[in-house]
């Protein structure tokens, strides 16, 4: 149904670490694989082997270049490159749900996961229009709206071993940049991570109150404190000869050194 349920205590979602994501697209493809074989219609591909190929994906990795401000008295810090995976953020105030005319889009009462009931979806596309994040894609073949399911058919799946009950993208991420958990529980690992690392919302001004959070990249290319480092390279000799002199001394200082 289309009206939003009262906010659930349990808010399942992802936390994505932009400091660690190397942009490998593993999460993209494992998501495609799992969701092609599971939940609803397979994710189709058009022009699969020709020009202008396109297909349905529920998770995509962008990359951005960020140029730190160029200050007068300092050499310009180099531009940074940041990989940026993006899937449905399972918003608390999900506009995609309320616009849906059929009730196909809904937010689960028990854990806040936003889903599309494909049997009811007419493929009008309005929910995708309403989503600021581009998290919904209409599958051209099935004619229904597709979106990240938070792998609802994995995380509770009793046919999977306990340790595998996590989203496909999280399980596969080689660098461990994706975390899954209950963001409604302040004591959960993901909530702690968000608190410690200053996790943030995308487009907060849109008022969607995303559940998923992003962890910012750590500061990069920080100018070292040369003064503090300098003593580490205090010369002990200026040339080979001097070095040999130093060496003799240094060697005799080693254990068992006195000849």
């Amino acid at each position: 149904m289309t009206t939003l349920p009262p906010p659930s205590a349990k808010k399942l979602g992802l936390v994505i670490d932009l400091d660690t994501c190397v942009g490998c697209h593993a999460c993209v493809v494992s998501c495609k694989g799992w969701n092609t074989e599971n939940y609803g219609a397979p994710l189709s591909d058009q022009n699969a082997y020709s020009g202008a190929a396109s297909g349905t994906f529920l998770n995509r990795v962008h990359s951005y270049e960020v140029q730190p401000p160029i200050l007068k008295d300092k050499p310009a810090a180099p531009a940074q490159l940041i990989h940026f995976p993006k899937s449905c953020l399972h918003c608390e105030d999900a506009p995609c749900v309320t616009v849906c005319p059929t009730g196909a889009s809904y937010k689960r009462v028990e854990d806040g996961i936003v889903l599309v009931n494909e049997k009811d979806c007419i493929g009008c596309g309005l929910c995708a229009w309403a989503c600021p994040y581009g998290a919904r894609e209409l599958d051209e073949k099935a004619g229904v709206m597709k979106k990240c399911t938070l792998c609802v058919d994995r995380i509770y799946n009793e046919n999977l071993p306990e340790e595998d009950r996590q989203p496909a993208c999280v399980r596969t991420c080689p660098s461990g940049a994706r975390h899954f958990g209950d963001l409604g529980d302040e004591t959960s690992d993901v909530s702690i991570l968000v608190a410690e690392r200053g996790g943030f919302d995308l487009m907060p001004e849109q008022g969607t109150k995303p559940t998923n959070k992003y962890l910012p990249p750590r500061p990069k290319d920080v100018e070292p404190e040369y003064d503090i480092l300098a003593p580490y390279l205090e010369p002990i000799a200026e040339d080979g000869k001097g070095f040999v002199g130093w060496l003799d001394k240094a060697l005799s200082a080693l254990p068992g050194g006195a000849k």
């Binding site: 349905t56 995509r60 990359s63 951005y64 960020v66 140029q67 531009a79």
Partner: peptide, 18 residues
Amino acid sequence: HIGKVRAFEPPHTGTNYL
């Protein structure tokens, strides 16, 4: 907060629904 943001590579070279 880091600086001016510019799109570098799109997530795919092809196109998509969005």
